[in-house]
């Protein structure tokens, strides 16, 4: 009998009531930012993205990691319009070709969350890798079959955007994730990303966005790796 597919939902670190109260506490103190979460950004939707970004540009300002540092340090958003983060998950080629240029055209900073293995795998294996690792695909019609960004494209984005680690193989965190998995998905992925970029990486995110407290061993690995921020489904947690 085939093994049951893992339940594809986020594990909460504590009771849902407590999570909701912690969110209300954050809102009450004004400690929150707005984000737009993107996955694929196919060419066919360009006009829609452009219309939305033109709207957001009227009300919001870009937010990079230094802006978030300052917000944490001062408790005050320092620009004249509230901050807006554009998150792009999975390292799709269409994020580089469509999402990033649009973000730049409208004055925003993208936070690109990369499952490192996806960037490094041969083009001929990218589709099957995506299917095996819960990376959703769209038909972009690329003749060469490449669906992930290249490392050169990642380095190009790194000049104006935030590059963050989204595990090695697009893994979700469980309470019993092994130490070997945690080392690979949290630490080794960071080292590989930093080797490609030539500088430190500050931000991490799990598949399905688990937060601190779900697995104390994972939290230790996050600290060991030296991440500053953990982006989860509901929060940006400052770790150091």
């Amino acid at each position: 009998m085939a093994a049951a597919k893992p339940k594809t939902t986020t594990i909460l670190p504590e009771s849902w009531e407590h999570v909701v109260r912690s969110l209300q506490t954050g809102f009450l103190k004004g400690n929150y930012v707005r984000v737009i979460n993107y996955h694929n950004t196919p060419k066919g939707k360009t006009a829609l993205y452009e219309r939305q970004l033109a709207f957001y540009q009227r009300y919001f300002s870009a937010a990079n990691e230094q802006d978030i540092d300052r917000f944490f340090d001062t408790g005050v958003w320092h620009k004249d319009k509230p901050g807006l983060i554009l998150n792009f998950f999975e390292g799709y080629r269409n994020n580089f070709e469509i999402g990033a240029p649009l973000a730049e055209a409208y004055g925003f900073v993208g936070w690109f969350f990369l499952p490192i293995g996806f960037m490094s795998i041969a083009i001929s294996e990218q589709e099957s890798y995506a299917e095996q690792n819960d990376i959703g695909l769209v038909d972009d019609g690329y003749a060469d079959g490449r669906i992930a960004m290249t490392w050169d494209e990642v380095r190009e984005l790194d000049k104006n955007h935030v590059i963050a680690c989204h595990t090695q193989n697009h893994q979700r965190l469980t309470r019993d994730s092994s130490d070997e998995e945690l080392e690979r998905e949290i630490c080794l992925s960071k080292l590989e990303l930093e080797r490609e970029l030539g500088h430190k990486v500050a931000t991490f995110c799990w598949l399905y966005g688990a937060e601190v407290g779900v697995n104390p061993r994972a939290d230790q690995y996050l600290h060991k790796a030296g991440y500053k921020y953990l982006l989860s489904n509901f929060k940006i947690q400052k770790l150091k």
Binding site: L23, N31, V33, F72, G136
Partner: peptide, 13 residues
């Protein structure tokens, strides 16, 4: 979710 930009709030903690 695979193609749309989804607006969300994130709390800073």
């Amino acid at each position: 979710y695979n193609e749309e930009g989804i607006p969300m709030f994130l709390v800073l903690e």
